[in-house]
Design a protein around this nucleic acid. Structure first.
Length: 211
DNA sequence: TACTTGACCATAG
DNA sequence: CCTATGGCCAAGT
C-alpha cells in the first residue's frame, strides 16, 4: 500500500523561496508567471498488516478498511512529524497499489515465496492492486521473468500456481521443480497437468503470516 | 489512440 | 471431470 503526502504552506504564510523563484522567472522572461509556491511531497510505502483472522468469511471489504487504516496511520505521521500544523497544510492520497511498476512488483513479491510453499497469480495481483482482477497480467509479468530459479537473487516463478491449486501453464518442469522442494503434486497425467496436494497447507501466506 | 495478447478467474452447461 | 465464454488488465504494437 502506498500513500502520497503533499505538504504546503498555509495561505498567508510567507514563502520566500516561492517568491524569489517567481521573481527570477519573471526576470528570465516568463512574464506570465503569476504565482509560485513551494511544496514538498513524501511517498510512503506501508507494509500491509497480516490478517489476524480466525476461520470464516473474511475477504470482502478487507481492502477498503486496509486503505482506511493506512490513511489514519499516515495522518498520524503528519501530525507527529511530517507537517507543522501551525504553518502547513497537508493532503493525503492513499493508493491501493505498490509504487513500483507492475512487473517489478510481481517479481519482488515472487522472490519472497519460501521454498516448499506456493501462492497464486490472483493473490499476487491482490497484493499489488488490491484485487485479484489483474491475475492475468501477473502471468504476463512472470512470463518475462528475467531470472528464473530457486537460488539467491533468482525469481522462483514455479511457486506461483492457479487459484484452485492447478499447477497451470508455464515452464515445462514446473512440477519437477516443485516436487524437488517438497511440494507434492497429484493428478499428474491429466489434461490440466497436475494439482498441488494439501494446497491450503502449503499456500503462502498462511493466515497471520506476513508476506 | 486503439487494438491485440496472454503462465488467470468465474460461471454455465 | 471437461469445454466454452466473458471479463480483466498491463504491455506491446
Amino acid at each position: 500500500m502506498e500513500a502520497e503526502v503533499r505538504i504546503k504552506l498555509k495561505h498567508g504564510v510567507a514563502d520566500p523561496e516561492g517568491e524569489n523563484t517567481k521573481k527570477a522567472l519573471n526576470l528570465l522572461g516568463f512574464r506570465n508567471v503569476r504565482a509560485v509556491e513551494t511544496m514538498k511531497t513524501f511517498r510512503i510505502v506501508v507494509e500491509e498488516e497480516a490478517e489476524a483472522g480466525e476461520g470464516g468469511g473474511e475477504e470482502e471489504g478487507r481492502e477498503k478498511s486496509e486503505e482506511e487504516r493506512v490513511r489514519q496511520e499516515v495522518e498520524e505521521m503528519c501530525r507527529r512529524l511530517l507537517a507543522n500544523p501551525v504553518i502547513q497544510d497537508y493532503e493525503i492520497a492513499v493508493v491501493a497499489r505498490n509504487c513500483e511498476d507492475f512487473q517489478n512488483a510481481v517479481w519482488n513479491l515472487t522472490q519472497k515465496i519460501p521454498k516448499g510453499r506456493v501462492t497464486t497469480y490472483g493473490e499476487i495481483s491482490r497484493k499489488i492492486t488490491g484485487s485479484e482482477s489483474a491475475a492475468r497480467a501477473v502471468g504476463q509479468a512472470l512470463a518475462k521473468n528475467p531470472k528464473p530459479g530457486s537460488g539467491e537473487g533468482e525469481i522462483p516463478c514455479h511457486r506461483v500456481v492457479k487459484k484452485g491449486g492447478e499447477v497451470g501453464e508455464g515452464v515445462e518442469n514446473k512440477i519437477v521443480l516443485l516436487e524437488g522442494e517438497g511440494v507434492k503434486i497429484k493428478d499428474k497425467e491429466t489434461k490440466k497437468g497436475g494439482k498441488v496436494e494439501n494446497f491450503k497447507d502449503v499456500f503462502f501466506p498462511a493466515k497471520c503470516e506476513k508476506w
